[in-house]
Design a protein around this nucleic acid. Sequence first.
DNA 1: TGTACCTGTCATCGA
DNA 2: TATCGATGACAGGTA
Length: 679
Amino acid sequence: MQNVKKYFTEGLIQFTILLSLIGVRVDVDSYWNGYYSPLEINDGPSSAFIQTPFHSLRDNWDGYSVHPKCPELDYFFASRRLLDEVRALGSPARFPTQLSAWLVHQVPDRSEFGEPPNSTSSSNVNAGLSSESTGEETNDSDLLAEDESCSTVSPRLRGRQEECQTATQLSTEPGPYPSTGACEIPKEEVELLNGQIDGDEAREEPVSLTQLALSSALEQEGLFTSGASPACPEDPRPPAIDIHQHWSHFLSLPVSEFDDLDPLVPQQLSDLDADISSAISQDVSLRDAMVTGSTYDMIPPRGGVRTLVARQPRGPLFQLESTNSSDSSPGTTTGLAALPFTTVVNGTSNGTLSHGALGGCLDEAVFDQINLLGLEGCLDNMDAQLLGNLQGIDPRVLGDLDSDSGLSLESSSRGPTSPGASEVSSASSSSFCEDEGGATGYSSEADSLPSKDIADYDTSWSPVDLSESVWHDHSYSTPAFSHPSATTFPHKTIKQEPFSDEDDDGEDYEDRELSRDELRARALHVPLSATEIVSMPVEEFLELLEGRGLSAAQVTLLRDIRRRGKNKLAAQNCRKRKLDAITGLQEEVERLQAQRNRLLRERQHTAKALGAAGHRMEHLSRDVLSRLRDDSGRPLTPERYTLQCGANGRVVVQQIRRPGVASTTAGGKTDKRKKEKKP
DNA sequence: TGTACCTGTCATCGA
DNA sequence: TATCGATGACAGGTA
């Protein structure tokens, strides 16, 4: 036990040091007190907490990808583990999808219903919850207290954090069944911890699982929490078995009953959509996360439903988002959620699967799990939702994604979503990523970069400095002439991609890759990339020209580069418009041809119908005439008589006048007889 | 070698 | 007036 304590002591110290290094204060005392709960001490290494070292995972998971202050990470691990549980329990073909989504979705709602995080009834779905999480809960409370110390934490945000605390508990236990040591937690400690959170309404009663399946989300919450109480000292039953039985029963439910659960999921997704912006505001660590590295960002929206965002390595979007994270506009939110990498999962579900719930647990592993569970269709829907979300993105962000035409400088060919971009971003150093992200034509970052770069190069206009900061820097760390593929010209970037892997010999490669203007600029020691020159605002550009004491050749070259760059963009846009216009005209022609064919078919059909009607009319006339008699009692023949419909709707029999026989009528009487029939 | 296509660039016009 | 976008025309590169 001493070894265990020593181990955690050292780990905790190191962890605290790491947190302090990144500016996070950690209350070690309270952390420590909560950390070594009696359960942990009793269980030792076998405890759930140790089996799932939340602390190490929090900071080490895929390399600093998650802010250590963010307790929402717990939700993520809880979600993953829940999926693992469900999968381990075995499942029908259809059920796991719904159940996983349901489980993940249920996690963050606990605290909303006033359930104590470490309540004895909180074993429910995870069954391993209980007192094992008390230490962890205390830990998160400390972290929460840390957050509360920040003046920027709003009460609403605090509510989020409290919700996430519950998720933290779920994440701290590794399996569905608690260890037997769970019952050894002192009751007073449980009560004490329960008292930390108001609304301890552990008054659930046992309910059948069928009823559970048909109950609402809130009801299910209570039902599950009431199902087993592994941490309850009075309960002699092994809670794990109880939960397992519940699950078995639950899994055996007919599919039709699970259909009733479907509406529960999107029910709370509206909350996600409504408050995701505030969740962005909550994620104060976005900027830090942006700096730290790869993989995914966890954006904690309301209800603990997370939006996992594949981290773009210091791209302009993230900078923009992190900068605007305080104003929680929908556009900002969507923009963040709709970052170019397609692993973004956001939005609503189609009723079968909780979209937000999936978004909360979609890391790579969970993506694989989802694929195994046959959720590709759901992911497709997510992509559709993602596209829908794109519409709400800040236009500037959209401009970064696709500079208004799809043929812009970098966005079309080297946009963040393009495979080439991924290759480059992964192949080149991380320092290059900024330029890569900013190389998307008129990106916000590109707009902001020049001034900074100008300031940076304020003393760097001499060739000597440039030789150090630009020319000899093959790490692509500097935006200026960093890498041809990161600069202005898309067709070059496209065409250079294939042999970019072949040519590794630096200078020849760069000379060949650099555009003509950039070569000129290099010759004149202009320490700005063509992208920067083109994309910088005109004010900055004029300031650059006027305030730098540039030579006439440099000024001319800068103007030419800017003019040519902009004109190149314009030409690309123009050509794209032309192409679109041609395509549109072609589609219009096809549509008109289809319409013409349809009208021709309708005309033929109408002619046939008209002919058939004429035939029927002729038969009818014959029939009617055959039933009529003239004055002499002979039947009227169609050769001599016809039926005419008068203006008043009456049908009259009219004798056909024929030359030479017109005067000879039957019976020598009037050659024109009219017999009226009621219509 | 001729041709089609793509792309950059220039000139020009209009906002 | 300067800037910028749009567009026709031309040239060079490439398959």
